[in-house]
């Protein structure tokens, strides 16, 4: 049953470029990119318990690295994506070094500071980033295939998103992933069981930043033009909302949160368009409306379902297949 459902979903996704509208493919690409980025943040915050407000900064690092590598270093666009991830991972590990000493709120503050410092650096380092005016990002091309629109880009996004999902799923069913969860749940006990807590945290920072950097590179390629303003703090908060609403420490939750909250504003847009007859100023307030709804959702989920959509989903599945015992997810939560 579950196999059939995922098979049908996969088939629909593979066929999407052949029948979807331009708008649908734009949204689908943004969903896929969000899945990769949210998975990255979830590895750090949900699975390892290290809160980060620096997600937008790592998106920016991924985006500007890719743009720089393609336009100024002459790297092929396809190679630039993992390279951007690697650069983000390296910087992520550097930011992670103080994390051994910092916990909870202090880490939130340190990553917030990292956000503003990265933003400042991006604005000032004009020779690399183009400064305030930003950069344009050429489409990746290989053997005459040029991914210059959403329809052509979708295959790559889908592939990378699936790879990211499988990687994360495997990881948290095996030793290194369990070590991260152990560090989150009880740092002292983890250390006593032989886990090098510092190393675990640094690898969580690196892996998380790699995913987020790849997402940033893809987002830059999709939008074609990036500037420091493409990465406001609210982007980091949106990503955290997706993690929380989707489900902290859950791979499936990352998908639900990323897709759900990427589609939500689109739904709001459709709704306000439909209601613009009665309330003409509603359209202009769309972004405010989005923030309002996201904020309310965060609060409501934290109070009533801290394990997010993933928990709701699991409960619904269990209810439907009450007879067949489901294997609990490797993520633990």
């Amino acid at each position: 049953m579950r196999r059939v459902a995922s098979g049908v979903t996969l088939a629909a996704l593979v066929l999407l470029p052949f029948f979807g509208s331009n708008y649908a493919l734009d949204v689908a690409n943004r969903c896929g990119i969000a899945v990769i980025g949210v998975l990255g943040l979830n590895i750090l915050t949900g699975f390892t318990g290290l809160i980060s407000l620096g997600n937008a900064a790592f998106m920016a690092i991924g985006g500007f690295s890719a743009a720089f590598l393609i336009t100024k270093a002459g790297v092929n666009g396809f190679a630039a994506i993992p390279a951007a991830g690697a650069i983000a991972a390296l910087l992520g590990m550097i930011v992670g070094v103080p994390s051994l000493r910092l916990k909870g709120l202090y880490l939130a503050m340190a990553t917030l500071a990292a956000h503003f410092i990265v933003e400042f650096t991006v604005v000032k380092w004009e020779s690399v980033t183009g400064g305030v005016s930003g950069m344009s990002v050429p489409a990746p091309a290989l053997f005459g295939v040029v991914l210059d629109n959403d329809r052509k880009l979708f295959g790559l996004v889908l592939l990378l998103a699936l790879a990211a999902l499988l990687f994360a799923r495997n990881l948290f069913r095996a030793r290194p992933g369990r070590a991260l969860i152990a560090v989150r749940d009880h740092e002292t006990a983890a250390a006593v069981m032989g886990i090098d807590v510092f190393r675990a945290k640094i690898s969580a920072f690196g892996l998380s930043a790699f995913f987020v950097g790849v997402a940033g590179a893809l987002a830059a390629i999709q939008s074609r033009i990036i500037s420091p303003e493409s990465y406001p703090l609210s982007l980091a908060i949106d990503a955290l909302s997706m993690v929380i609403i989707g489900g902290m420490g859950s791979v499936a939750g990352s998908v639900l949160g990323a897709v759900g909250l990427t589609l939500l504003p689109e739904g709001l847009r459709a709704a306000t368009n439909a209601l613009s007859g009665q309330w003409p100023d509603l359209i202009s307030k769309l972004s405010i409306l989005k923030e309002l709804v996201f904020s309310i959702l965060i609060i409501v989920f934290l109070i009533f379902e801290p394990h997010g959509l993933a928990a709701l989903w699991r409960r619904a599945v269990r209810k439907r297949h009450a007879t067949t015992q489901q294997q609990p997810e490797g993520g633990g939560k």
Binding site: G104, L289, S295, L297, I298, P306
Partner: peptide
């Protein structure tokens, strides 16, 4: 701690919007 920090971020968003 994460939940409490996040809920105040949600609160901030709610008040601001």
């Amino acid at each position: 701690v994460i939940s409490v920090i996040m809920v105040t971020l949600g609160l901030a968003g709610l008040l601001r919007s």
